[in-house]
Design a protein around this nucleic acid. Structure first.
Lengths: 384, 384
DNA sequence: ATGTTTTATTCAAACGTTTGAAACCTTGAC
DNA sequence: GTCAAGGTTTCAAACGTTTGAATAAAACAT
């Protein structure tokens, strides 16, 4: 009995642990001038409150309603004066939230990516999420290393901009395993249960073809996209369908195929080569339906080099409506993808998926095919 | 004397703290299925070692040499199997390093930014730093909020791509206060003690002017950049110098000034307007020296709309060598900025500054003016 | 046997935040 | 003079990782 009491009243009962306060005091002495950033503790010391109070005030936690107004002001002032910025790492660690959504583009240098990016950003800004931008530079290795990084940075969602280069292999496994919601822009991956936003390529192809037919063209050359590229097939299908509807048989000898691209700008050279080839072959055509805008620009260049003018001698159509197409002279008639809208829809979907996961629900993968739009500029006209 | 000993031998000396082991055991029972990511503890439990050992092995710390090979393998296998990825937040918090360099662009949609970005990325990749890409979208508010974010995310360095929009006001204060090294690309801020990488605008302007003079042009119109833009003045100075050297007086009535830009693409409209104005005024010129490529493209468009051809009736020069200038037909003769090299130099400088700071030294701000290069394409030729 | 080194593993204290629970004042009521 | 209520502030335990110091076990020499 006495033994128990002694235990409680001993003068020096095995000093197992220092109190928090003691630890803080020690630190005050130990650290002379911190090389790093200013912390809550610095502020707490500077104005005589505990770290807790300071935290509560500065993070505007619900509890801060209970803190005296005078105290609040004193703390805020000190924080401002010392240039305090909360440590995102400590905060995210503790809160178990990164407030981060990764945006992984297969190649930012593709003018196609920008408007999408803008859409994503505009969709993300209102929510309290910061975009984590990454550019895979069309390199598989980089792409994978970024995916690893995304997992390590505990991104709460992922938006992939990928018209190609994107093989779902490991990605799916590891992301899925960690319950990171994914949305992909520019490709249909709903078969793999990933929400997808893309343009209706089939409709776009048809739109382009109908435009040329309406202008009176009959001999139309078509440059199909590279085989690896997901967009190529449906676009071609749409072109064929519209041709059939207009009663036009597309001469197979006027159908070309872009080689596999190594970088997005290579479409330009492809288009230029095509123009040279068709002129050399002597086969006549009054219009060229190019796979995308950069290819169309290449075609214009190739035709010009041979002394042919666009659109007087030959019409040229592009696809995507990227910046260079609008700024060239003649401006390229093209099929516009509503890229910004697509981006912001992707952002919205990711946010919804995160919210759903939060409340225990599961969001079924969705698919949205944006309606393309014909933009008539100067590169198309009636046949000569 | 007895009292002290009693303290040590008491049966139940106020159980002040649970041991680490106990804590872990408790957690094992408490948490059934973790909703979040798999942690070191999960792996430790799964293969019967302590968290320390697992950490040492997986992070390949120096101590891991002492860990039995068998153990190492077992741990690695388990980590792979469970899909473990170290938590960047916990790691950075503990290591007090974010391994992150922020790259803040004033407007990613400007084709001018990309090549720089690529340069930066290529300079950063070999080092163990991840770029933290941010796009201010030409909005002051966003710019500031990103700067705040950069501080919170404890970026170890900052590269700013800013030909404009960048006012150094608060930035300097807060970044400097936290010892974050800064390099700016596209503007000389060495007066504010910030290392700067930019093109030698004066030399570029002169280069362009000399090209036109050499072709035999005498009546040369010049479109000066917007006043807010830092590049405008030195470029104009170079043009004047080269003109004087060639004995050419530039007719003040042929000198125009772009209005302040709201977005990077607005140069196009500026150039187009200019062409309309000069044609309407009836003043003759045989060449136009435009402030940048986008402006040059606008001029080409404007001239074409009036029935004038480039370069037969009038030569047009650009500046920067961005993608659309190369892809237009005719290709725009321009002054190339070695953007990629500039970007990678900026990256190198930041890395050096970080290293310097690490070893207590201080790196003096540097200035590099890249040598511009004339790229002759098809938009320039002898006067008619 | 006893000490010394080597090898393999773990302890416990950080890093900077957040937050449920506890403690500390006042003040007012019985 | 005790109790309760309320407002204000602090405690202490997390979050997941790293790491200097400590321990345990084995190997080796004395």
């Amino acid at each position: 009995m006495a033994g128990e009491d002694v235990g409680r009243f001993t003068f020096d009962p095995a000093p197992v642990q220092r109190t928090h306060f003691e630890k803080e005091r020690l630190r005050v002495k130990a650290v002379k001038h911190k090389p790093g950033h200013v912390t809550l503790l610095d502020i707490a010391r500077a104005c005589g409150f505990s770290v807790s109070t300071v935290s509560i005030v500065l993070s505007e936690a619900p509890l801060s309603r209970n803190v005296a107004v005078k105290t609040r002001e004193r703390i805020r002032a000190k924080a401002r004066q010392l240039g305090y910025h909360p440590d995102a790492y400590a905060r995210s660690l503790r809160r178990r939230r990164s407030q981060t959504i990764a945006v992984l583009a297969y190649d930012l240098s593709d003018p196609f990516c920008f408007p999408i990016l803008r859409g994503i950003q505009s969709g993300l800004h209102p929510a309290q999420f910061r975009p984590l931008l990454m550019d895979a530079e069309t390199e598989r290795k980089l792409f994978d290393s970024y995916l690893k990084m995304i997992l390590e940075l505990r991104a709460e969602g992922l938006i992939v901009i990928a018209s190609w280069v994107f093989e779902e292999t490991n990605l799916l496994a590891d992301m899925e395993k960690n319950h990171v919601p994914i949305v992909i822009v520019g490709r249909d991956l709903t078969p793999s249960k990933i929400s997808s936003v893309l343009v209706d390529n089939e409709a776009g192809g048809a739109l382009a073809m109908r435009h040329l037919c309406a202008l009176g063209h009959r001999k139309i050359a078509v440059i199909r996209g590279p085989a690896e590229l997901f967009d190529s097939a449906p676009r071609w299908a749409g072109v064929q369908r519209a041709g059939a509807e207009a009663g036009i048989r597309i001469d197979p000898r006027l159908v070309f195929q872009l080689p596999g691209m190594v970088d997005p700008a290579s479409g330009f050279e492809g288009g230029r080569d095509f123009a040279r080839q068709i002129l050399a072959s002597g086969r006549a055509c009054t219009a060229v339906l190019a796979f995308d805008d950069l290819t169309a620009l290449g075609v214009v260049r190739g035709l010009n080099e041979a002394g042919l003018r666009v659109p007087e001698d030959c019409s040229v159509l592009g696809f995507d409506d990227v910046l260079p197409a609008a700024m060239a002279t003649p401006g390229i008639t093209t099929i516009r993808q509503p890229l910004a809208e697509m981006g912001s829809l992707a952002a919205q979907w990711v946010l919804e998926a995160i919210e759903a996961r939060e409340s225990g629900r599961q969001k079924a993968p969705q698919l949205y095919k944006a309606r393309p739009e014909l933009v008539v500029r100067m590169s198309s006209g009636p046949p000569p």
